[in-house]
Nucleic acid binder design. Structure first.
Lengths: 134, 134
DNA sequence: CTGACTGCAAACGTTTTGCACGGTA
DNA sequence: TACCGTGCAAAACGTTTGCAGTCAG
């Protein structure tokens, strides 16, 4: 069975061709906003509705299968949930990369300064990617 | 001269009673979303328009006087621009606190892993604040 | 005095909803 | 077969725009 089908079942989402395509697209592209997703889906399903995109994205978010990534000064993108990671956003080409960075040193500092108990650490680096800085 | 008036002038924003009130409110409350800001303003200016809030917030953002803070799973809030800092968001009471944390250790790690050149580091910690965990 | 700001209403873009139909389990 | 997903159209929502009157510089 294909990977996307398996994943959808694991997250208790009914398997439809549209959903498989959304998962495939997120898998290959990594980060997509609603419009990108809609454009891509239109290639495969010329009569797909934007409402279908929204409904599916929303139910996938609810089931913690995908997550919304809020980017400063830009539209939100969606990505498949995986290991906790940070994001690199290029101001020049707008590309978003994932990077797994050990944030324990910052968490230690926080613990020494505050009584706040952290469940989730969100880090977004904005700057210029290696290909753009060449 | 009051503080807010002075600040508005420094940022080349014409001083109006509505703008002074917005700055005062942001100064005292720290972080406010558009609706909170509108509600507060309605107390002082019963006929203020939402459009006025938007127009002022937008021009203040353009002049780098205030900034939008995007919070995972929640509405954006606005704050006066000051020293770079991170945010603590309580999942329980939704309060947002500022915290100045040294993020150089994470930047060092990033530098050793990638060629990305960082201009701005955005950190949001989500969890439970000290008063809620009591 | 001039240009910018305000408040109102209309317009706009984005997201959600209701419904009839079709597909999945 | 029963329920859920799809596509369409309409509705709802948040934000922006245009305009006439007013105010700040």
């Amino acid at each position: 069975m294909e990977n996307s089908t398996k994943l959808l079942k694991e997250f208790n989402l009914k398997v439809t061709p549209q959903r498989i395509a959304i998962v495939d697209e997120l898998y290959y592209k990594g980060h997509l906003n609603i419009d990108d997703l809609y454009s891509s889906m239109l290639n495969k399903f010329p009569s797909i509705s934007l409402a279908t995109i929204y409904k599916n994205v929303n139910s996938m978010v609810e089931k913690f299968f995908i997550s919304e990534v809020k980017i400063p000064n830009s539209k939100s993108v969606y990505e498949l949930i995986k290991e906790e990671h940070s994001h690199l956003v290029c101001e020049n080409c707008n590309k978003i990369e994932d990077i797994v960075i050990d944030t324990s040193s910052v968490l230690e500092k926080l613990k020494s300064q505050s009584d706040f108990s952290v469940n989730y650490t969100n880090v977004v680096f904005t700057g210029v990617c290696s290909s753009c800085s060449k």
